[in-house]
Design a protein around this nucleic acid. Structure first.
Lengths: 248, 248
DNA sequence: TATTATTGTCGCACTATGCAACAATAATAA
DNA sequence: TTATTATTGTTGCATAGTGCGACAATAATA
């Protein structure tokens, strides 16, 4: 949905709150690996977290959902604000200027993107298979990278990413319900793998299973016959908790 | 430290990041009550959380410490960023205009303070007895209010305050070391009262004492003879943990 | 010296969790 | 058909944390 007016305003800054940005750590899970959505600027070989700006007439949260939608093609995602970053060392006008000029935009000394920015950090948990990554107007590519093998990111984006992961780790149980990281149905082993990947440590199988089941958030479905020579695991999904569960 | 240039810039907005503010929930504890530092605007009878702005050449965190210092007279306080608020409904230009005009400032339609603001929320835990509250340039008073009997606050400041309290409740144990809420030395009962006040629930005395001592963060000092007809309690203080404690 | 109120501590029950063991079972091999 | 193999669901046991009640210690007063 890139219109001319979008293009003009994103590059000129018209209609956006100046000096204030959004940055996103968009997290997926695929083949036992955490994946992070990263932008690439071809001419400079720079990598960055997806980001965006807030329109003057737009709620912060609304802006976050809009930008997230623009990068992933998805709406209604689990989205969590975790920290706002405002160090002066954040800005890196040289790199930004190179990126802009590489894309053919005139980047005078006072181009609005070259100014100092404070940025509000969000992370999103998404279903890897449902996302269709879209670069923004000044990026050349937008794609998944393995969390364990990320390229060096521009500015303080690595720090932002680490903050996000730390926040996610400490809130993992509370945010279980927002887990869009897995498909509709999954086995206990897949869930445990996800936990272990996020936490960065091995968990005990029986304890993990017991704890997950005791939370009362999982619904057991049919068995999943994988064709392997052993007992077939059950599939689970997260219960849709409309209202508080009846106590009888 | 109010200089003319301060006054001019705070009222005109010169040198500050536009549309971006800081708001503070400054929390004290005195006579078994949580206290919140609140600003009052005389002519409008409006109440507000202390706030401030970020200079263009100043780190976000640095700005927060500067503003906090201006309101409390203290530096080196425990300061925690907890959320950034950016709803469009935040702004309330009518009230702000009335406040400015009441203080004799010309508040044209486009005065910078009347514009839309996103605000970064911080809370600080302070030693009630050490703070000397100072109003800012457009407030008439700055003083402590009981948490249980707060006046209605302008804009979304009540919501900001509730976010801060919720964050504090869920992170109480982790933030124990930053506790400047109590004086240098305190009894276990005082600490428990503080916990109960923040959490809003009664705790079991012996369990609480055991848990606090097991954390290994408290140092037992001499007894405190209160003059009452019963056993005298020990005083405690938080250990200064320079480096990780030796394991031998 | 007895009384009173509060404190520091301990024991017991209950819960949560790490760890190991065991039976169940889906596919394959004999 | 039967044995084998790998993985799963479940249970038992040891350990740690916590709610709750009880008890001795003790500072001031009667």
């Amino acid at each position: 949905m890139v219109t001319d007016s979008n293009l003009i305003s994103e590059v000129s800054g018209t209609g956006f709150i100046p000096h204030l940005a959004l940055d996103f750590v968009i997290i997926g899970f695929h083949e036992q690996e955490l994946k992070i959505l990263i932008l690439e600027y071809e001419n400079t070989s720079l990598f960055a977290l997806p980001g965006g700006f807030i329109r003057m007439d737009e709620d912060l949260e609304e802006a976050a959902r809009r930008v997230l939608g623009e990068r992933t093609g998805l709406t209604d995602l689990f989205l969590q604000q975790f920290h706002t970053f405002g160090s002066l060392e954040r800005s890196d006008p040289e790199s930004m200027k190179a990126i802009l000029e590489g894309k053919g935009f005139a980047a005078g000394e006072h181009h609005w993107l070259l100014q100092r920015f404070v940025t509000v950090g969000y992370y999103a948990l998404v279903d890897f298979t449902k996302v269709s990554p879209q670069p923004d107007l000044i990026a050349d590519r937008c794609g998944w990278h393995d969390y364990g093998r990320l390229p060096q990111l521009m500015q303080d984006h690595t720090r932002i990413l680490q903050f996000a992961m730390q926040h996610l780790r400490t809130n993992l149980d509370q945010e279980l319900l927002g887990f869009s990281l897995l498909g509709e149905a999954f086995t206990m082993q897949t869930l445990q793998n996800l936990y272990e990947t996020i936490l960065g440590e091995k968990l005990n199988r029986s304890s993990f299973q017991r704890r997950m089941l005791q939370l009362g958030l999982l619904e057991r479905l049919e068995k999943s016959y994988t064709g392997k020579a052993h007992k077939a695991p059950y599939l689970y999904r997260f219960k849709k908790l409309g209202i508080a569960p009846a106590s009888f």
